[in-house]
């Protein structure tokens, strides 16, 4: 408990530092905010154009699709706020030997490298995504209980951690393959899979996206919970999968560190 408090405190401290840092680049912050907003609008136009051609896609109507879009957006933004920058920086740190100081601190190294930078624009944006979800739920006439909202929150967090685990594992691969910035782009590319209902994919791909590359677990489970398109078993499955992935990151991180070369610039 004391350790947990210490780590929370340190997280807060690093987030505060990033906030102070962010204040120096206010203009950038505003631009980022509107950029991400535009991204959302663009997805909205996309869905609009698609549903201009047909009334339903794989059994989902337009507003259900928008709940999915919003959910996915919230998750992606939270992930990007907390972890994305850190994962990308990690690949550089491994390659250029900049992990040294992280390794000598009397604290969990994975924690230190994973949470150092926070992107505040993304945090603000995730709330926009939440507004989109609420709006779409209103259109569908679906209410959410407190328990449902809490469970949704937990699932969103779980999804963020799954994203983190995948990206972290890819970054850590740098220890073996020397450079993996192309692998980092995978986030944007895998991310596409989670934007749509699982049923648009053929059997084999769908199975893959529910297990090994769990892009459907990430988005379809929390969104499915909201619009009642989900059996309870999937919720447990989602949490179990998240825990498994997280455990794997710890293991591979330790393995990778043994290969660290600490190149001097």
């Amino acid at each position: 408990m004391k350790t947990l408090l210490k780590y929370l405190h340190l997280t807060g401290l690093m987030m505060r530092n990033c906030f102070v840092r962010e204040l120096q680049f206010k203009a950038n912050f505003v631009v980022r905010f509107f950029t991400e907003l535009m991204w959302l609008v663009m997805q909205f136009i996309y869905i609009q154009v698609m549903y201009g051609q047909t009334g339903q896609i794989a059994g989902w109507n337009k507003w259900e699709m928008i709940v999915l879009m919003g959910t996915n957006y919230v998750i992606a933004q939270l992930f990007e706020a907390l972890f994305y920058d850190n994962c990308v920086r990690l690949t550089d740190q491994i390659r250029q030997g900049d992990l040294d100081f992280n390794l000598i601190k009397p604290i969990n190294t994975q924690f230190l490298v994973s949470l150092r930078y926070t992107d505040y624009a993304s945090i603000v944006n995730s709330s926009v995504g939440l507004a989109v979800i609420l709006f779409a739920l209103g259109k569908l006439g679906i209410g959410v209980s407190l328990g449902g909202a809490l469970l949704f929150g937990a699932l969103v967090l779980n999804s963020v951690l799954i994203y983190y685990s995948i990206l972290f594992i890819l970054s850590v691969w740098t220890f073996w393959i020397g450079r993996s910035n192309n692998l980092m782009e995978l986030y944007w590319q895998f991310g596409q899979f989670s934007r749509y209902p699982g049923d648009i994919y053929p059997w084999l791909l769908r199975k893959l996206l529910w297990t090994l590359i769990p892009m459907l677990v990430v988005s379809n489970v929390p969104a499915g919970l909201l619009i009642h398109k989900l059996q309870n078993g999937w919720i447990f499955y989602g949490f179990a999968l998240g825990a498994g992935f997280l455990a794997f990151t710890v293991w591979i991180w330790q393995k990778g560190l043994q290969r660290y070369r600490s190149a001097s610039s």
């Binding site: 073996w176 020397g178 450079r179 993996s180 590319q189 895998f190 596409q192 899979f193």
Partner: peptide, 16 residues
């Protein structure tokens, strides 16, 4: 020099 990076990049480019 970073072979794997390129091969993965080339393959996964087609995911979208």
């Amino acid at each position: 020099a970073y072979r794997a990076n390129y091969v993965f990049g080339a393959i996964f480019r087609f995911l979208p």
